[in-house]
Nucleic acid binder design. Structure first.
Length: 642
RNA sequence: GCUGUCAUAGCUCAGGGGUAGAGCACUUCAUUGGUAAUGAAGAGGUCCUGGGUUCAAUUCCCAGUGACAGCACCA
């Protein structure tokens, strides 16, 4: 006699076991029609499942956000059925719901191409229209393996074989077609609805391992209704407009070309943006007790051998052989070994710690060609790198200080929210477990002290220590690691860094590797997308354009531009033979934040008509006022606070 | 690196076995205008590179390079 408690607190009693469908019907015909799935004591279950004990039950309908994942998961199944119907011999593997949609990985000699998608999508719509019920079956493990092997589905068989011993093996059937699946599922294929679309094909390794065969993946998107789907597709188009590669061309910030793949040619405007960010970070770090250094680009392989990088990353290093000598140099892929060399000059005392050594370090890494992405992932980049040499006791305080600085910097750049990941020991690593226990423990304690909430990223730490990653998201929804802090007990040992203790003994410092923005290239890419090119004034590559209405005002316009330039603003002069409308349009399209319009009237009165980007109104003021106002507005946020 | 797609004017793109086009940008001329496109004329191409097929290749085939998407990688 199960008593079912509903979300509103009310209870209903049934004689004997009941299905979700029965409960929903008892509550009302509307719910019975709408309920896609039930949640029993927090566990999602098919509507057809029976409940025989007391339980708390709620139902998920199309109105619930939670329905999205179910719809997407079912859409993946339906896609798999469609594919196998159209392309016999294709093997199924896995097909989960993901953010905004779903995918399914297939094994097939001929990979799927975009041309295949319309037919598959059409077949899917047929299956949805048929509204075939999903039914759940519990199978015996051995029989399931045998069944799939007989069918030639070796990937499925492997999946079942690898399921943990006690796991119930469930099969979901939709008409003739069936798949191994944990469930739960919607009631029938029709519940998926019609708001879905197949998006693209791609290769993906079986079980995410490049040693395994490559599968053919099809991505789709699915939503609760057409409106949501349209909104999503529209959002994708908008994101494309924010793409930093496109904006860089449009705004003349930088370019990349074949002769220097993965390296950036910074144009004057892009470089100005770069220097503005660099100057800002330099000020913030000086204020934060860092000392800036500069270390060599080319360093003998002996140092990389000692640090362990040669062993692990040699394939990703640019090597320079010297004909005249018997030496092999490498372009530095990172700065830490060099910073240790500075630390090692002379005797260090415990009284000097912590030492915060910063460098805008230019690094080169031979990134795999497929990893390159605009300015976000390159082969030559500059980090806002620093290493904090400190004692074990100082780790927590230094981490707190760092996190505070990072949060303040991100806020100044307009990033209010970002993800934090804690990456712990990887499989191949330097240092024994005791050292890793200490390093991970110290970093966790520091997080607690700093009030940092993170998600765990198991096994993703650096080879020498655990790390916190600060992740920002680009316009297309891709996540990028920018900031990081890493606890390292290993390199000081390998590179023999030590200091004199209060007892006049010798001890190893701990190294904290840390970066706030990470690489300038990546951060600027994200910054461009974040603002869609419409930067706040202090970051704008062109802060103002002086545009004339008539050529009689040319001379005065030059004077205005000179005055702004003298005040430190990035200003351009437009005395071209164009109508003012055309000039406004042109500079607005290039996201110039301020246009100072001068005509005969302004020239006579020594005024300017200031027009803000996107605004229709203009404000007439004297030249002096304009200079003062724009200078004030263009002051970087840290200097405004000072 | 792997799988797929793509590569034509500065940019965005159309085209197609018989040496090529549009819009924007650019140059020149006319126009001196009041807040998101003044008009006209002109210039601009090794159709990514190298092979092959063909009477003929920018177009078809093969290879390379690069870009894009995803996967793998990311000290």
């Amino acid at each position: 006699m199960p008593a079912i408690t509903l979300p509103d607190g009310s209870q209903r009693n049934f004689d004997g076991a009941v299905t979700g469908t029965t409960i929903a019907q008892a509550i009302g015909p509307g719910l019975a029609k709408a309920a896609l799935i039930m949640v029993v004591d927090g566990v999602e279950m098919d509507m057809s499942r029976e409940i025989s004990a007391d339980a708390t039950v709620k139902f998920i309908t199309r109105r619930d956000e939670d329905a999205l994942e179910l719809i997407r998961h079912d859409a993946a199944h339906i896609m798999a059925e469609a594919v196998q119907a159209l392309y016999p011999g294709t093997q199924v593997t896995i097909g989960p719901a993901i953010e905004n949609g779903f995918y399914y990985d297939f094994y097939r000699n001929e990979p799927f191409t975009p041309e295949d998608l319309p037919a598959i999508e059409a077949k899917m719509r047929e299956i949805v229209a048929a509204n075939t019920p999903f039914t759940r079956e519990v199978w015996n493990r051995e029989e399931a393996i045998e069944f799939f092997e007989k069918k030639g589905e070796r990937f499925k068989a492997e999946l079942i074989r690898d399921l943990p011993g006690g796991e119930t093996i469930t099969i979901y059937r939709q008409g003739e077609w069936l798949d191994l699946c944990r469930g739960p599922h919607l009631r029938a294929t029709g519940d998926v609805g019609t708001a879905f679309k197949l998006m693209k094909t791609a290769g993906a390794y079986w079980r995410g391992d490049s040693k395994n065969p490559m599968l053919s993946r099809i991505y789709g998107t699915a939503w609760r209704d057409q409106k949501e789907l349209d909104a999503y597709l529209h959002q994708l188009e908008e994101a494309e407009r924010r793409d930093h590669r496109r904006l860089a061309r449009q705004m003349d910030l930088f370019h990349i070309q074949e002769e220097a793949v993965g390296s950036i040619f910074w144009h004057p405007k892009g470089w100005r943006l770069y220097r503005t960010v660099e100057a800002y970070i330099r000020r913030r770090q000086e204020e934060g007790g860092y000392e800036e250094v500069r270390t060599p680009q080319l360093v003998d392989r002996k140092l990389w051998e000692k640090s362990g990088h040669w062993d692990k990353y040699r394939k990703h290093m640019f090597i320079a052989d010297v004909v005249e000598e018997e030496s092999t140099l490498a372009l530095k892929p990172m700065n830490c070994p060099c910073h240790v060399q500075i630390f090692r000059q002379g005797l260090r005392s415990y009284k000097q710690l912590p030492i915060r050594m910063a460098e805008f370090g230019s690094c080169h890494r031979y990134e795999p060609s497929g990893a390159l992405h605009g300015i976000m992932r390159v082969r030559a980049f500059t980090q806002d790198d620093a290493h904090i040499f400190c004692t074990e006791d100082q780790i927590a305080d230094e981490t707190v200080r760092f996190v505070e600085l990072l949060e303040s910097v991100y806020k100044d750049f307009g990033f209010e929210s970002f993800a934090v990941k804690f990456s712990d020991r990887p499989e191949t690593r330097a240092g024994d477990d005791e050292v890793w226990d200490r390093a991970e423990g110290a970093l966790k304690a520091a997080c607690a002290q700093a009030g940092v909430e993170y998600t765990l990223n198991p096994g993703e730490g650096a080879f020498y220590g655990p790390k916190l990653e600060f992740v920002l998201r680009d316009a297309i929804g891709r996540d990028w690691q920018c900031g990081t802090i890493q606890v390292d007990f290993v390199l000081p040992e390998r590179l023999d860094a030590e200091y004199v203790t209060s007892e006049s003994g010798r001890a190893r410092p701990v190294m904290l590797h840390r970066a706030i923005i990470g690489s300038f290239e990546r951060f600027l890419g994200i910054l461009i997308e974040q603002y869609a090119g419409r930067f706040p004034l202090w970051l704008a590559p062109t802060q103002a354009v002086v545009a004339t209405i008539v050529s009689d005002a040319d001379e005065y316009a030059q004077e205005v531009a000179a005055a702004l330039q003298k005040a430190g603003l990035a200003v351009e002069l437009d005395i071209s033979n164009q109508k003012i409308q055309a000039k406004i349009r042109d500079h607005s399209l290039h996201h110039v934040p301020n246009i100072l319009v001068v005509g005969r009237r302004e020239a006579e009165e020594r005024k300017v008509a200031l027009r803000r980007l996107g605004g229709a109104a203009q404000e007439v003021m004297t030249l002096d006022e304009a200079v003062a106002q724009l200078t004030r507005e263009a002051t970087p946020p840290d200097l405004q606070r000072a």
